[in-house]
Amino acid sequence: MSISDLIPWKRNRNISVNKSYPFHSSLQKEVNRLFDDFGRNWDIDFPFNSHPELQNFRPDINLAESDNEYVVTAELPGMDEKDVTVELRNGGLIITGEKKNEKEEKKDGYIYSERSYGSFSRQVPLPDEVNPDSVEAEFKKGILKIKLPKTEKAKAEHKRIDIKTE
């Protein structure tokens, strides 16, 4: 494990998104989660981190990056814009919200339950600066999509380095 494995935004860069795998490995997910939880304490301090009961529901996120923007998508089935808060803080994106528990209402009738409920907080560290005024978020079919355009400064900093040959 190299040092870059410990930096959250570099960690998964090398994991290619392989479409031939039918399922996302649950072990991989678990390991990611461990790393995430470990990193939480020093990335951005968030008061809910220490409450395990609030972490029942943990939406899965994807992060895409292009030269101009980041696109974060999160799977939040059954929720809508009223249940979710999206914030930009300390160079990271924070998605918090609560998935309401239908179980509480009809506790007696439940015979099988796999879906999870509860409060959640996900943080996505963004290595490049983003323009907070032009961030767009939309909720469609249970998927939250947040577009974060990079600042001109951040774009300019990405410079291709010429490799010289003799």
């Binding site: 935004w9 860069r13 998104v17 996120i61 990056e65 996505v124």
Partner: peptide, 12 residues
């Protein structure tokens, strides 16, 4: 999902 660029981190 449609997006420009590459997927750099994926959980789902």
């Amino acid at each position: 999902d449609s997006y420009k660029g590459e997927l750099v981190y994926s959980e789902y």
